[in-house]
Nucleic acid binder design. Structure first.
Lengths: 159, 159
DNA sequence: GGACGGCTACTCGGATATCGCTTGTCCGAGTAAATGCGG
DNA sequence: CCGCATTTACTCGGACAAGCGATATCCGAGTAGCCGTCC
């Protein structure tokens, strides 16, 4: 899995803390916060914006902000926005190639049992990610350190 | 996810049908059956052998065979053997870099909530794969087409 | 005819190139604020 | 002093290279069967 997912998730969580501010947050600021390559982070934030997770405002005081309420953004939304909608395991139906196809009796008519099980497993993974929202993460983080939101807002407010 | 996983799974399922035969199956034969690159398939079968899933016998009548009973080989075993033991999502703790670390209050002391959720989701995925064995796949495949085993054995027996 | 030694063919095993995708960077389009000028 | 046109600085957005892992291939080590020869 690409690192962009991690970057996107962290930045989304930051934007949860900064959601109360009505000013969008520029990419450069988020990159500085996490010590990341600004342009590359921008690329991923664009993907989130295309997916409708973030709203982008160009111009001098522009930046990104959450497009929906945190409890309406699941981890699966972020992952699929960055990684793409394709499943991790895609069965190319090699069984349909070569003599193995004929043995199975048909040109890929039957659903591949391997693909079936792999998709089932991946579905549970997706379901787990879909059941967790940014709000859940924020709540859990605040249980660990109650002043995270205030500290984060303060840092982003500075110069 | 790499294609090698699919190749490995299909070949393992073939080896289930051919488990009754006491002669190992060469890589070239499996490659021909699925119309795959023989040398590259061999590479993945080597990985399965290193993991103790397949047993390899060199020499003229050599080849691969299942090292354990099919109900003792889970899909997770095959996947980890090919893909490696590392989790798909590895949190590099970017929060420990840059000012964000100080805001969180500590040099990575606190466990990252993002990493926590991602690992939980991946754990469900692994659990699902660990709960499915080659024997389960074989049974399911035979429910679809009862004569798969016989057909496969016949093809591999031919010249 | 039987047994033994060497030979050959075939297989795994790892070292070696090639390719595609993720990573990383750059510059242009566009917008809001700041600024200077005129009334 | 107030309003407006212009300039400017800053931001997103997509187009453009570089690095690394998966893909694909080849050759060497080793073994089992086969063949010829000798007893």
């Amino acid at each position: 899995m690409s690192h962009g997912v991690e970057w996107a998730l962290h930045c989304c969580l930051d934007l949860v803390w900064l959601a109360e501010e009505d000013r969008p947050v520029p990419t450069a600021r988020l990159a500085e916060f996490h010590d990341l390559a600004p342009a590359y982070l921008n690329k991923h934030l664009q993907a989130l914006a295309r997916a409708g997770i973030l709203g982008s405002t160009p111009g001098k005081r522009g930046g990104f902000r959450l497009a929906r309420r945190p409890d309406k953004i699941s981890l699966l939304d972020v992952v699929t926005a960055v990684e793409g909608p394709d499943p991790a395991f895609r069965c190319l139906n090699i069984r349909n190639q070569g003599p193995g196809d004929a043995v199975m009796g048909g040109s890929g008519r039957r659903a591949c049992v391997i693909s079936h099980s792999m998709r089932r497993a991946e579905l549970t993974w997706r379901r787990e990610l879909a059941g967790t929202t940014l709000a859940d993460l924020a709540e859990e983080a605040q249980q660990h350190a109650a002043d995270v939101a205030a500290r984060t807002r303060r840092w982003f407010a500075d110069a």
